[in-house]
Design a protein around this nucleic acid. Sequence first.
DNA 1: AAGAGAATCAACCGCAGACGA
DNA 2: GTCGTCTGCGGTTGATTCTCT
Length: 216
Amino acid sequence: MGRSPCCEQVHTNKGAWTREEDDKLIAHIQAHGEGCWRSLPKAAGLLRCGKSCRLRWMNYLRPDLKRGNFTEEEDKLIVNLHALLGNKWSVIAARLPGRTDNEIKNYWNSHIKRKLVGQGLDPRTHLPLKAGVRQSSTDEGGCSGGGGDLDLSISLRLPHAAANWPTTSASPEVVPAPPAASCGQTICFCYHLGFRSDEACSCRASPSGHSHGHRG
DNA sequence: AAGAGAATCAACCGCAGACGA
DNA sequence: GTCGTCTGCGGTTGATTCTCT
C-alpha cells in the first residue's frame, strides 16, 4: 500500500541497461517528452518499471549531462553546498549544471569524503575530527549549518565571501549577493543559491523570517 | 602474469511528500 | 478530510574496473 507496484512486477527487467533499451527510451522521450513515468515503459516498449526508466534517463541518457571528471571548482562547490545542506544531493545537483544527484552522491562518497577525512575533517559536520564533535552555540544560529572556523564552511560571514566563492562557468547561477541578503552580519548562503523555501536554509538567525527574502 | 583488494559507478530499494479522486 | 497513486529522493548494494603486490 502506498508503494508503487511497478517494481514488484515479475516480468520487468532489472540490472544493467542494454543499448537497445537505451535507444528505445531515448527515442520515446524525444518523441513524447518525459511525461508520465509509470506509463512510459509500456508506451516505449520497455520491460522496465517507470522508476528504472526515470533513473536511467536522469542519470545517464539526458542530453545535457556533462559527464567526465569534476573540476576543482565543482569540487569546492559540492563541499560548500554539502556544508550548508547536508545530503541534499538533488539540491546540490541543481546547482551543478550537467551533473546528477547520483553522480554527485557517488563522487562525494568516493572522493570528497575521503579527502576531508584525510584533512582531518568530519565529512558530516565539516568540523575537525580531533576538535570534538560539538559545535559552538554561535555556529548553531549561523547560516553555514556548522562551519566553525573552517575555510570550507561557506565563508559567508566575511565581506569578501563572494570573492572566495567559486563563480565559474560550473556554477552560472551563483551570483554575488545583494546587500540585503544577510542575516545580520551573516550572509545567508541560501540566497546566493536562489533557494525558495526555508527547507533548504538552516538560517535561524532571523526569527521574524528570512530577512534575505527567499524568492517565492 | 595473476590474484587480491580498493575504488568507482550504475542501478535498486524503500520511504516520504505531493497530488488527485 | 481521507485514501490511494505516483514521483522524486537518499541510502545502499553489487558488478565492473583499476591498482598494487
